[in-house]
Amino acid sequence: MVERNPLLNLLAHAIMILGALVVAFPIYLAFVASTHTAQDIMQAPMPLWPGSNFWASYEAALTGTSRASGSAPVARMIWVSFVVTMIITVGKISISLLSAFAVVYFRFPLRSLCFWLIFITLMLPVEVRIGPTYQVVADLGMINSFAGLSVPLIASATATFLFRQFFLTVPDELVEAARMDGAGPLRFFKDILVPLSATSIAALFVIQFIYGWNQYLWPLIAATSEDMYPIVIGIKQMIGAGESPVDWNVVMATAMLAMLPPALVVVLMQKWFVKGLVDTEK
């Protein structure tokens, strides 16, 4: 039995609180900056308490009515990011489920080789194959489209590997019972494997949503129209808008708005996310 030590508990909580404050302080500064005018932010020292320009800053960001919003309004960029992220997330999970199902439950020549070829693609991230990928997307006329921003990113060897490892733990008796009840492959997949994989799907949904939302390099070259900028690219465009002054309050408001969707996904799906990572009853 581990003996509880009040002093060690106090020290552990103090370290945890200190770490949380260190992580949260830059976010707090961004929020404070978004509530002041650009002139107030440029003063030294910068204000450390919220100001009275909250509504004006966020309205300017959402509608694109400021010098910093040289591209599309933030509301449009958030919509583009959300659509692209959902396509990437759902696409990765769907393709990974089907590919893992095929590798585990179907007998065909070179099955193991096919899996390892999928797994080897982990060594070829988007940054390595970005040239050929861009050429294919351009030849198909998918530049400045939701398909062009999302389709090259929807395959996931990691998710395929995780689902394969989980499917291998499903008892063979369950497969035999489903076969005796007359369930075909697709029904077994839909009615048994997918429900059993719910927690893993939820955990991967959170991970892939954050991955898709934070994509920068591929949208930077696949989106040349301001109407198709995701929020991450939009923030960069606001900062590097040429010689014109930067409305830092609007930039910070945009950064705060950009953090809301992934933060909400993590908060709302935290229970499923943790269960999918640590559940030992599978």
Rank of each mutant, 00 (worst) to 15 (best):
M1K: 12
N5K: 12
P6D: 04
N9A: 14
L10D: 13
A12D: 14
G19W: 13
A20R: 08
F25D: 07
I27D: 05
I27W: 02
A30D: 04
A33E: 06
T37H: 12
I41F: 03
M42G: 15
M46E: 07
M46A: 04
P47H: 10
G51Y: 03
N53S: 14
F54V: 10
Y58K: 04
A61V: 04
L62V: 01
T65G: 09
T65C: 09
R67N: 05
S69P: 01
W79K: 10
T85W: 00
T85H: 01
M86Q: 10
T89I: 05
K92D: 02
S94E: 04
F101A: 13
R107P: 06
R111D: 03
F115M: 09
L122D: 04
L122V: 12
V128C: 12
I130C: 01
P132K: 09
Y134I: 03
Q135H: 09
V137Y: 09
D139K: 03
V151C: 10
I154N: 08
A155F: 12
A157K: 06
L162S: 11
F163H: 02
Q165K: 02
T169V: 03
T169Y: 00
P171N: 05
D172N: 14
V175R: 11
E176C: 06
E176H: 05
M180H: 11
G184K: 01
P185G: 08
R187T: 03
F188V: 00
F188C: 01
F188R: 00
F188L: 03
D191N: 15
L193W: 03
A198N: 15
I201N: 04
A202C: 05
A203N: 01
F205Q: 07
I207W: 14
Q208R: 06
F209D: 00
Y211S: 08
I221N: 01
T224R: 15
S225E: 15
I231P: 01
I233K: 07
Q237I: 07
Q237S: 13
M238H: 05
I239L: 08
G240P: 14
A241L: 14
W248V: 12
N249L: 10
A255L: 04
L264H: 02
M269Q: 06
V274C: 06
L277F: 04
V278Q: 01
